[in-house]
């Protein structure tokens, strides 16, 4: 990757915004277009940009394979946990309204959906980064 000051600078500026946008998209999923998946991809796009700007090695310092692994597991686990939670409350898997009914918290359903969306988003982000790492990197992680 050639050293390119402009790209680097712009990237450094843009990345937080993109990440913020990703978060927004994930969070906004319940009420408007968007959702975990799109948000996750957006989040990943930020990292892609960083890779383009700073090179892989640099980005790996921020999130390495271990982190990706943990994130992806965490995301899926989050989703599954939401599903399993409803089993605990004697519902079927993913029967979120049972939880809502059991806990009596209004709009919990929506919140749980958001949590699940977040899980999706995290996983998608992690996996996307992982894929990009693997595709773009010929050397591999030294660790």
């Amino acid at each position: 990757m050639r050293e390119n000051v402009v790209i680097r600078t712009v990237s450094r500026l843009a990345v937080p915004f993109i990440q913020l946008f990703g978060l927004y998209v994930i969070a906004h999923g319940a009420s408007g277009p968007g959702g975990g998946f799109q948000g996750g991809v957006a989040f990943a796009a930020a990292f892609i940009l960083m890779i383009i700007a700073f090179g892989i090695a640099d980005v790996r310092k921020r999130i390495n394979n271990r982190g990706i692994m943990i994130f992806s597991i965490f995301g899926i686990a989050l989703y599954a946990a939401v599903g399993l939670l409803s089993i605990l409350y004697a519902g079927n898997f993913l029967q979120l309204n049972v939880i809502e009914a059991a806990l009596g918290i209004p709009h919990l359903h929506g919140i749980l959906i958001d949590i699940a969306e977040a899980g999706i988003g995290i996983t998608v982000m992690a996996i996307m980064i992982s894929i990009i790492y693997d595709m773009a990197d010929t050397g591999g992680e030294s660790a």
Partner: peptide, 9 residues
């Protein structure tokens, strides 16, 4: 059922 606006979601 769900109380969220985006039907797709």
């Amino acid at each position: 059922d769900t109380g969220i606006a985006n039907i797709v979601t």
